[in-house]
């Protein structure tokens, strides 16, 4: 039973990784159009289908599979850099990856220190998804648990940000989470494609606008 526990451990917001500081486009979207719980749910469903399942999950799993080969992980990392159109998302992914890595290096997760050294040396970007794959493999998660942890963190990250932005209440947010869990489970069970691809233009535009804003609570 250690597999599910390890996945819960990593998906738990109490595990410090810096994720709380990123709204991943939601703050920009909420500033440009009225959002309610239903709109939030549709938006998150779209991100799960067209970004998480096809890009974040794929990069994480590819890095998970090749975690012992840092050159291979660096190639996946470079693919994430190249395939992420929006600069605030690239920067956020690198910073969130650095946060996750900082925690895993300090708790001595196998592989984390070598990957951090490579990132610090400028020989990798250290994006979140490949970093998750690498450190979660080192931490002993299985591929299924890593996939679910990755997806759940996207889902709960959006709803937590939505609560802080006043889009929904803390209890209503959990109703959104509950309604989206079947979709997450369905997407997680599907075979991962070979290449990274994503399409979430509304959030790309919202994040780009947000990056130019004077006032903001979140990093992206």
């Amino acid at each position: 039973m250690i597999g599910p526990l390890l996945a819960m451990w990593q998906a738990d917001a109490a595990f410090p990784s810096g994720g709380f500081a990123f709204s991943n486009g939601l703050e920009g979207l909420a500033a440009s159009e009225p959002l309610d719980g239903e709109a939030l749910e549709r938006m998150i469903a779209g991100v799960l289908r067209r970004r998480w399942a096809t890009a974040d999950r794929v990069a994480m799993l590819h890095a998970f599979d090749r975690a012992s080969d840092l050159d291979a992980v660096a190639e996946i990392d470079a693919e994430v850099e190249a395939a992420t159109l929006c600069e605030p998302f690239r920067a956020g992914s690198r910073r969130n990856g650095a946060g996750l890595l900082a925690a895993h290096v300090r708790i001595a997760t196998p592989g984390a220190a070598d990957w951090q050294a490579r990132v610090r040396a400028g020989r990798a970007q250290g994006h979140l998804a490949p970093t998750q794959g690498l450190v979660w493999r080192g931490a002993g998660l299985d591929a299924e648990g890593a996939t679910l942890a990755s997806g759940y963190m996207v889902l709960s990250g959006f709803t937590t940000a939505a609560v802080r932005l006043g889009v929904v209440g803390a209890v209503a947010a959990q109703a959104v989470v509950r309604r989206l869990l079947p979709l997450l489970a369905e997407l997680a069970a599907a075979p991962a494609p070979d290449r990274i691809a994503s399409f979430a233009p509304r959030l790309d535009i919202a994040a780009a606008r947000h990056a130019r804003g004077e006032l903001r609570l979140f990093s992206n």
Binding site: P16, G18, F20, A21, A98, G99, A103, R120, R216, L217
Partner: peptide, 24 residues
């Protein structure tokens, strides 16, 4: 380091972004 609306979180419960900034 932007605090994501939580100034106490970024120095207490989850200081990893600050740790990474220090490392940088």
């Amino acid at each position: 380091v932007e605090a994501g609306a939580c100034p106490h979180t970024v120095i207490r419960e989850d200081p990893t972004l600050n740790m990474a900034a220090g490392d940088e």
